[in-house]
Design a protein around this nucleic acid. Sequence first.
DNA 1: CCGAAAAATCTGTTGGACAGCTTATAAGGT
DNA 2: ACCTTATAAGCTGTCCAACAGATTTTTCGG
Lengths: 225, 225
Amino acid sequence: MNQARLSDQAYAGIVEIIKSEELEVGARLPSEARLAEMFGVSRAIVREALVRLASDGITEARRGAGSFVKSRPSERLAAFMPSTELPTTLGSYEVRFVLEAEAARLAATRRTPQEMVHIEDGMATLREALLSSEPAHAEDMELHRRIAEATGNPAFVIAFDALWNDVEKIMRAGVDISRSRPPEVIATMLREHEVIVAAIRAQDPEGAALAMRWHLWEGRRRLMP
Amino acid sequence: MNQARLSDQAYAGIVEIIKSEELEVGARLPSEARLAEMFGVSRAIVREALVRLASDGITEARRGAGSFVKSRPSERLAAFMPSTELPTTLGSYEVRFVLEAEAARLAATRRTPQEMVHIEDGMATLREALLSSEPAHAEDMELHRRIAEATGNPAFVIAFDALWNDVEKIMRAGVDISRSRPPEVIATMLREHEVIVAAIRAQDPEGAALAMRWHLWEGRRRLMP
DNA sequence: CCGAAAAATCTGTTGGACAGCTTATAAGGT
DNA sequence: ACCTTATAAGCTGTCCAACAGATTTTTCGG
């Protein structure tokens, strides 16, 4: 009668524990015996779930010591981020320069109509936010993320998300520096994004890559003239 | 004394059976008890390997009937990816292609003498491992990571580490499939790496980027001809 | 207060057992 | 012979009890 295997439920249960208990990376999970007791299953079932979690890079088992959180599922893509070594502004832009230019190129080549709608929606949201003179970092990032998604290649999103936190800090800092953002800068930023989206819409790979490079180049100049 | 878990060996062993016995998609694997007998381990160990194989989309278990081949590893390397977010084999290499080529270029430009020593050490370790016909994925990865570090830009290392898990799985899968790696392939892999290191040593940015692109391109071809 | 020995925990692994599902086999009727 | 059906065999899913070996915690003597 039980269609779903118990080890699948145990897998989900352990993920839920990591999330709800807010176990940080490096924290120890309950022992296999304790988990088995909690879920009302045998230890063998818990082990089957744990080898899958370890295989997925979420946990790590140390013989004799216990199982530990290796990367939190919700933040899995941004794991291993050393908060001490903050990349320089230049640093993040260097990576975005190659990564997102390639993402824009591939997005122009491979985008489905559905993904195009997704990008257009993101563009509309960003336009609205910029015109109302709000900070709009989140909307900016979201548009870039949707472009990465439109490559159809999750690896781009993985790399993109890994940089997300730091890039966001840099952008916030940038706005703090030039808080009085003149209207012509806003108009320029808007136009740059629209050129990128237009190139992806027109399925023009080189145009999209060039527009993205230009946008990032100008963005860095705006931060550190 | 056993550093490696038995279930990892069982995982590799079952993949080997699928490949060597030329089991087609839909074919039935030996029973868990039979596999346990073949590998000289308990049934619990075989089950731990099988839940991972099922999670990776390679096999499928039907209660009461047996386990069946769902997709052959050689045909779909993507099946070795984590079940939640699935980067394709092509996917990871696409990102590495732009990311690591740029890292090699910058490493050649900016490397300090100290970082060069670090890279040379990694190269020596990789050479030793390859010549003794060991798997050498870890050494390979470590060298690439040290090149990323030599950019002096932590953002590259962040992006690189984010992809690490998945790329490592692809490499393991690749070696499992082509276990009998001929000496000329080892020599080629060694030479490719040495060309990259030489270009960084000579502070030749374009040469380093080109050598890295060539290496990754050939590496992908070796995995999926 | 410190360091070493002992105890408690924990993972990795094994063997056996049983329920319930699926396939193969045998029996029986037509 | 052929088809149906009942029985047997095999398999996965699950549980329990146990032990080796590694690690952490506790205890105890100086």
